[in-house]
Amino acid sequence: MQILVLILGIVLLPKACALICFGCIPGLSGRCTQTTNYCPFSTRCGSIRVTSYAYGSKVADIKMKMCAVAEQCVGGSINFGVAQTRITSKCCTSDLCNFQDAPEGSISSPNGKKCFQCDGIDCTKTLKCNGNEDYCISTAVTVEGKKVTVKGCASKLICSETQSAQISAIIGEEINCCQGDLCNTVGLLLFVTPLISLVLFS
């Protein structure tokens, strides 16, 4: 009888002590079905939002809920001048506390940092960075079958080595970050790291 109680305790205790969070990660359609999940002890309940803008208009607004590690419970942005993406999060540590969406990121004030940005093939224009965008960034994207260089400002989250390699995998190009005004020009990268993630979820 004591062995049966011990086995039941081993099986049921993790679920009794684990955090329960809402989960909802949209597919390609942008829709998802909300579920409840038992989360590992090292995680929190998280609501994450990724909002993208082009020429001042919102072009994407992705809302997710999940078991989140501490590194996902932060905010960040990437700014190429004509296109910007902001990530916001709201994390908590009680059962089903992530029922609300993360807030939409707002446009921050300029922070004094400057990076190069590209206008077509001219990558000598200066971009004023906003809020927590304390890195300069440089990469290439494919537009209508042609590879185009893009440069701009990014926050530490975007350039962090602790994130996954999803963005690099999605665009198929290496992304370089550096610190220092106007450092994102060929030959002047002062501190180069691969951009490892914008969307934080695996």
Results as ranks from 00 to 15, higher is better:
A18D: 07
V59E: 14
A18T: 11
L188H: 05
Q84V: 13
P103C: 09
M1T: 14
C118M: 02
M1G: 14
T124S: 11
K63Q: 12
T43Q: 10
P110G: 02
K58T: 06
K128L: 12
T33P: 15
G131L: 10
A54S: 11
K147P: 08
G30L: 08
S138H: 01
L6G: 15
G30I: 07
C91T: 03
G27T: 08
S77V: 11
Q163G: 14
G56M: 10
L198K: 11
S106Q: 14
G23L: 00
F201Q: 04
F191P: 08
L157Q: 13
S57A: 12
F80S: 07
D119C: 14
A16N: 02
I137Y: 12
T124Y: 06
A16K: 00
G81W: 01
L19T: 00
D134A: 12
A140W: 04
V148I: 07
Q179W: 09
T185G: 06
I87T: 08
P26M: 00
A165M: 05
P40N: 11
K65P: 10
C39Y: 10
V143D: 00
T126F: 06
R49Y: 07
L198E: 10
C123N: 03
G30M: 06
A140D: 07
L200S: 05
G75H: 01
E174T: 12
T93E: 13
I170G: 03
L182Q: 06
C91M: 14
N176A: 13
T126G: 05
C32E: 04
C123V: 01
S106G: 09
G172F: 04
I62F: 12
C115Y: 03
G120C: 03
S52F: 04
L198M: 06
G131K: 08
Q163Y: 12
N98I: 00
V150D: 01
C21V: 01
P40S: 07
F116N: 00
P26C: 05
K15C: 15
K125L: 10
K63F: 08
I10D: 04
C183G: 02
A165H: 02
S42Y: 15
D122L: 08
V69P: 06
